[in-house]
Nucleic acid binder design. Structure first.
Lengths: 197, 197
DNA sequence: CTGTGGACTCAAACTGCAAACTTGTCAAGG
DNA sequence: CCTTGACAAGTTTGCAGTTTGAGTCCACAG
């Protein structure tokens, strides 16, 4: 019971450890990250890290999980920020995704998964891009059905799925600036959504 | 002059050599293909092969080139076959692309290029997927502007680019049967094309 | 009790090196 | 013109021997 203090310390440890791991992964890649480095960065013993995460793989999984959650939350926030303007909302969300992928190596790796050639950062075992993409899709679908209940459900699903795929495609093979790409995709999506059935 | 007979034989050699190389690449992967194997399959000496293609890389380039040309031609044919019905035309073209990617390892590799993890078939040096995709886009754009001159040029370009990207996306990460995917994408494209500007 | 640091095991990764193999070229012969 | 055989240069393969780093155990300290 009364161990809520411990819980907080434990959580602090997890957070700082994941922060340290994030930095190390971004710099050297997952394969070169040593448990000892992470422990040292946190200022804790290697053993303590093992007590908390169990294994390096589990640390990696936790890291990817946190990154995924933050990313999906971010997308949802961008949408919510423009709940009144559908086109702006989509533009913001797509722009956010493109910018995150360009900025954050982990997000980039998670979204494009199999592409380990550029920067093999992740344990392929722990992740495939599928879960992130479905999570992102769910967020978008929820937003659309909530703000625009008049739209056909099937259409919303197909357009959302395509929007997500197109965003990933533009991450993998960019042809324009993130801003212009985001605008193009959102107008495209809006046309498809509001077209005569 | 008067060597048109030679020309034909030479062409025959190129064709059968590329056929043999195609089969070997599909079975063992490009790295494991030996120039001797190709020569033997054609029934010709290794030197003759070198006289014709110069190097293994150039043989690979020629092979990829032929495959690309055939693929793009195939897409154009599918479109032309339904010149009267836009939706059917797009469905056929996308379906053709999906089926080719599923059937022909070389087409799959060319279209998805960088993804060498599944079946590293190609010399990364000789190809990137970009040229194929732009070629395919050009074919689709030409078809659309020819059959539907009323459509806005910018819209046609964006929709086509997205259509191509979505097709590749569904090759990389399939979620449904090729037929249904093709139908979904064509209705999506049609909606976007014919939406109020 | 919980965290620490050191000792330890074991499998995977890397190292150095020799043998086998391939590419690409050349010359002799049909 | 094509083929066969030979060859240099470069690469891959197989296999010692070594190193590394994950994961575990434990005696000890706060």
């Amino acid at each position: 019971m009364g161990s809520s203090f411990r819980q907080i310390v434990r959580q602090q440890l997890r957070t700082t450890a994941l922060d340290a791991a994030h930095r190390l992964v971004s710099e050297r890649g997952w394969a070169s990250v040593r448990m000892g480095q992470v422990a040292a960065a946190v200022g804790v013993s290697r053993q303590t890290l093992y007590n908390e995460f169990g294994s390096k793989d589990e640390l990696g999984t936790a890291l990817v999980q946190r990154e995924t959650d933050q990313f999906v939350t971010g997308v949802a926030e961008q949408l919510a920020r423009h709940a009144d303007d559908l086109e702006k909302a989509v533009t913001a969300a797509v722009g956010y995704a493109l910018e995150q992928a360009a900025t954050n190596p982990l997000v980039h790796a998670v979204l494009t998964s199999a592409r380990t050639d550029t920067a093999g950062l992740l344990p392929l075992l722990t992740t495939r891009s599928e879960p992130v993409l479905t999570a992102a899709s769910t967020v978008v679908i929820d937003f659309l059905t909530r703000t625009r209940p008049d739209l056909d459900t099937d259409t919303v699903e197909i357009v959302t799925d395509s929007l997500v795929r197109l965003t990933v495609s533009h991450i993998v093979l960019p042809t324009d600036t993130p801003e212009r790409t985001a605008r193009k995709l959102s107008t495209l999506a809006l046309r498809a959504l509001t077209a005569p059935h």
